[in-house]
Computed example of a mutant assay.
Amino acid sequence: MVEDTKNLDSPIEPGSTPESTADAAPGNTIESNLGDDAATTEVQVNEVFDTDEDSQEDDTPLDSAELELVVAALQQEITTLRQQLNTQSQQTEDFKGQYLRIVADFENFRKRTSKEKEEMELRIKCNTVNEILSAVDNFERARLQLKPTSEDGISIHKSYQGVYKQLVEGLKKIGVSAMRPEGQEFDPNFHEAIFQEPTTEYPEGTVIEQVVRGYLLGDMVLRHAMVKVAAAPEVSSDDAASDGES
């Protein structure tokens, strides 16, 4: 009993670390960990600075020979790039020229096709109208030759003349017009002379009469007019003799 009391009353010597006291003081462990981290950080910083110093030591200036080699390599690269640029520019000009030629060819093709289409339509129209003109001629001959006297004949005459008028109006709508060459000077571009009549009433070469009517389609001759042309009057033998005596 005395020993136990003595042990309880004895003070703890400084520097001694009882197991219970060491287990109950976690602050000593935290401080030791912080110390280790700080040491590690310092080592890493030193390594970084050491690396920068090494790189600075390796960054030595180039001598003149190495500098000339670098400049020559850059000049060669510039020359190569310029050659490539010139090649690309030439190819661009070639492509542009090809494009312009294709556009011009297409425009010419479009104009030629449009012209051929118009000419084909005109030929078809001319052929169709020429077939109709034969019927128009027959109507005109009937009008000039037939002179009905009975009521039935007059009625029939008016009926087919109405058809003739309707036909002529339809031709006018598509641009067909009849020639009126009487009294004009003979023109082979529009007229075809089938008779010549000596006369003093008209100057020589004047169209006296239109035998078969000519037609125009716009400004184009659809059918030449067959005409009678005035010729110089014939000189009789008596007139010739009197002229010789004078």
Rank of each mutant, 00 (worst) to 15 (best):
L216P: 01
D50R: 14
S64L: 14
E93P: 02
Q83S: 12
M226L: 11
M179A: 08
C126P: 00
V70P: 01
L122R: 10
E42Y: 02
R101C: 04
A104W: 02
G35W: 04
V229E: 00
Q44A: 13
L222F: 01
S55T: 15
G170C: 13
E119L: 12
Q75Y: 06
T113M: 11
V207R: 00
E209F: 12
P14E: 02
E234S: 03
E93G: 07
D105I: 03
G214T: 00
V212I: 15
S16G: 10
Q145S: 09
T128N: 09
L144C: 15
A240F: 08
N46T: 14
R143D: 07
R213T: 11
K147A: 04
V45R: 04
E107T: 14
C126T: 06
Q184L: 13
M120Y: 10
V45I: 12
V45P: 03
D9K: 13
R101T: 09
L167A: 14
D36M: 11
D52R: 15
L85C: 07
V136R: 00
S155P: 06
T79H: 02
Q75I: 14
Q184P: 02
G205R: 02
E118Q: 15
N28P: 01
Q88W: 00
G15T: 01
L34R: 12
S242D: 14
H191S: 09
R110P: 01
C126A: 13
P26E: 03
S155W: 08
I102T: 06
D36G: 09
L69P: 02
L62H: 11
V229S: 00
S150L: 06
E201L: 13
T29I: 15
V163Y: 05
D137Q: 09
I194M: 10
P61H: 07
Y99P: 01
K117S: 14
D187P: 02
R123I: 07
D238S: 10
H191N: 08
D187E: 08
S246A: 13
T199M: 02
Q210L: 04
N7T: 13
Q90D: 11
E204C: 09
E13G: 07
M220W: 03
V221Y: 00
I156W: 04
E3T: 06
D58V: 13
E151W: 05
D63E: 10
Q88L: 08
Q145A: 06
G35T: 11
N86D: 09
R82V: 07
A225G: 09
Q84N: 05
L85N: 08
G162D: 12
A22N: 03
E47C: 03
R223L: 03
S20T: 12
Y160K: 10
P26T: 03
V103N: 10
E47T: 12
K165M: 10
T149D: 07
I12V: 14
M226T: 05
G27L: 05
P188Y: 03
R123G: 02
L81C: 06
E77T: 11
